[in-house]
């Protein structure tokens, strides 16, 4: 595709094409970035809000401009999704650290810079240019909102790319914690810290539990069973990792299918029910309360 349009003798073009290849060969769950087909010096990206911060679950889009002298000169970054940490459509200075202005170096890449940008989000802006210092709650609201729709920006071609990136990120990013549990995506998040995985699974459970609570008969059972289910999930989670990790090698963007989701949600509910029933049986055998439950059901 792009290879035909560019002078491959141009070292910047050569380098950028290699970065594109590398980016596609080693996709990350934390970010996604691709150049426009019409101009490989113009990229779109999205990053996932870092975990354990008010940005968790947020999907933040932005654009990257690579200079003609790349990789000798640094790329410039601009966010498009309101986030409460950086102004949108304003160049972000990644070397804000006032005491030791870090030099850009050719051994860095778009990937390195995106990783740095993610790490930068929860840091204190210290009044740096282009930075915002919104309250945590405001940022959390923006994080939730960021998932709803990608920003509208630029040509239709660019918009298509933004939308694609958004779909990809939605399939990878677990939802904002403590909210939106109704739109739990059934897909198991890949390549994550075990604790993140656990929280997303407990969110799944919570969703299942909500549905279960609609039937009043097992109301009490659920209430008592839940605390015991959690450690069970924690133990189960790591074992599911090897299978999901094989997906990493796939270069193509995975398209998020709602039908898949529903299937997974039902599967999750089914599993939860089974677990609850099993635990209940155990519980009944082990304690004298059994008779009480028997009476109720």
């Amino acid at each position: 595709m792009a290879e035909d349009k560019y002078n491959l003798k141009n070292p910047a073009v050569k380098r950028i094409l290699q970065e594109v290849k590398e980016m596609q060969a080693n996709p990350s769950d934390d970010f996604m970035s691709l150049p426009l087909e019409e101009n490989i010096f113009e990229w779109q990206f999205a990053i996932r809000g870092p975990g354990d911060s008010e940005f968790e679950g947020g999907i933040y889009h932005g654009r990257i401009q690579l200079p003609a002298e790349y990789p000798f000169k640094p790329p410039s970054f601009m966010l498009l999704t309101p986030n409460g940490r950086f102004e949108t459509q304003t160049k972000i200075c990644l070397s804000i650290s006032n005491h030791h202005p870090e030099h850009w170096q050719p051994s860095w890449s778009v990937r390195t810079a995106l990783v740095a940008l993610i790490a930068f989000m929860p840091t204190n802006p210290n009044g740096a240019l282009g930075s915002l210092d919104y309250k945590k709650e405001e940022r959390r609201v923006l994080a939730i909102k960021s998932r709803e729709a990608p920003p509208k920006f630029g040509t239709p071609e660019r918009q298509k790319l933004i939308d694609e990136i958004h779909e990809y990120m939605l399939s990878k990013a677990p939802p904002v914690p403590q909210s939106g549990s109704t739109d739990v995506s059934g897909e198991k998040p890949t390549n994550e810290e075990a604790d993140v995985q656990v929280t997303s699974e407990t969110a799944e459970l919570a969703a299942a539990v909500e549905e279960l609570q609609n039937s009043p008969t097992i109301n009490r059972i659920v209430e008592e069973a839940v605390p015991e289910v959690q450690p069970e999930v924690a133990r189960v989670a790591p074992s599911s990792r090897p299978t999901t990790q094989t997906e990493q090698g796939r270069p193509e963007t995975r398209v998020h299918k709602p039908a898949d989701d529903r299937l997974f949600t039902w599967a999750a509910i089914g599993l939860t029910l089974a677990i609850v029933v099993l635990l209940l049986k155990k519980f009944m055998k082990a304690s004298a309360h059994g008779s009480v439950f028997m009476d109720e059901s």
Binding site: P71, P106, S107, S109
Partner: peptide, 13 residues
């Protein structure tokens, strides 16, 4: 731990 593509162009040149 350097990524190959970040230095190979310079070596090749």
């Amino acid at each position: 731990g350097y990524t190959e593509f970040t230095f190979e162009d310079f070596f090749a040149l």
